[in-house]
Simulated scan of single mutants.
Amino acid sequence: MAKQSGLTVWINPVLVTLWVGALWMTALTASVLFQTIPDRQLAGQVAGRLFTIVSYIGLASGLWLLLQRLAGEGLSAFKQGLFWVVFFMWILVLIGEFGIQPLLAQLKASALPNDVMQSVFASRFKTWHGIASIAYLIECLLGLWLVIKSS
C-alpha cells in the first residue's frame, strides 16, 4: 500500500464520513418530513432537494476517493474491495441523479396540475420510486460497509 500524503490522511476519512453520514441522515430526514408535513407534495420537494444535495456530495467525494486510490495504488487499486465499494456507490449516485430522478421529475411534471399520485402516472412513479429507494438502500449499506472497513 502506498504511503498517503498529509492531505489524504485526513481528507479521505472526512469525505467518507460526510458522504455516508449524509446518506443515512437524509434517509431519516425524508421519513420525518413525510410524517410531519401534511402536504405530501411539499414534503417530497424538500426531500428531493436533500437527496440532490447528497448526490452531489457523493459524486464529489466518490470521485476524489477513486482518483486518490488510483493515484496512490495504480492498477492494484482494481484489486481492492474498498475501491469497488466506492465505485459501485458512485455508479448508484450517477444512476439515481441523472437517470431515475429526471424520470421521476418528468412524471411529476406530466401529472400537473394534479399530484402525480392522483394521476395516470401513479403506477410508473411508484415503480421508479421503488427502484430509486432500493438503489439508495444499497448505497447506504455499501456506505456502512465502507465506514467499517475504512476504520
Results as ranks from 00 to 15, higher is better:
F88M: 15
I95Q: 03
K149T: 14
V86S: 03
A111D: 10
R49H: 13
G72C: 07
W90E: 03
I11V: 11
P102T: 10
S110E: 14
S55L: 04
L15K: 02
I138C: 02
Q101S: 06
A27W: 09
V16I: 15
P13M: 10
R69L: 11
I11D: 00
N114P: 06
G143R: 00
R40H: 07
L142N: 00
L75A: 08
F87H: 01
V93H: 08
Q35N: 11
V54F: 05
L141P: 01
T127H: 09
M117R: 12
F34S: 08
Y136R: 10
W10H: 06
P38F: 04
L65Y: 02
I57A: 05
G96H: 03
H129C: 01
W19Q: 01
F121Q: 15
F125I: 05
W128E: 01
A22H: 10
A122F: 02
K3I: 15
M1N: 10
L70F: 02
S76M: 07
G143I: 01
T29F: 14
L50M: 14
M89Q: 09
V147W: 00
K149I: 11
R40T: 05
C140I: 07
E73L: 04
L18T: 09
L142S: 01
T36C: 04
V116R: 02
L33C: 11
E73V: 02
K3N: 13
A47L: 15
I91Y: 03
W19K: 00
Y56M: 06
Q80P: 09
S123V: 11
S110R: 13
Q35P: 02
Q45R: 12
V85S: 00
L50V: 05
T127I: 13
G44E: 08
F78H: 00
K3R: 10
N114I: 09
V54I: 05
A30L: 13
M117S: 10
K108A: 13
A60T: 05
K3P: 11
L94I: 14
R124L: 14
G99A: 09
I134K: 06
V116H: 04
L112D: 12
Q45G: 10
V120K: 13
L50T: 03
G130A: 03
A27C: 08
A47I: 09
T17G: 09
L33E: 08
A22S: 15
T8N: 10
E97K: 08
F125K: 00
Q68E: 12
T29G: 10
L137S: 08
H129I: 05
I100L: 07
G48D: 12
V20R: 00
N12D: 13
E97I: 09
G81C: 12
A122Y: 02
D115L: 09
I37D: 11
G96I: 03
F87K: 01
G99K: 03
S133H: 06
H129L: 02
I91L: 12
A71Y: 14
A135P: 06
I37E: 09
T8Q: 12
R124P: 04
S151P: 10
M25H: 08
R69N: 11
G96P: 06
W84R: 04
Y136M: 02
V120D: 13
K149F: 11
L82R: 03
G96N: 08
A77F: 04
L104R: 04
V147I: 05
I95T: 12
K149Y: 06
K126W: 05
S55V: 03
P113Q: 04
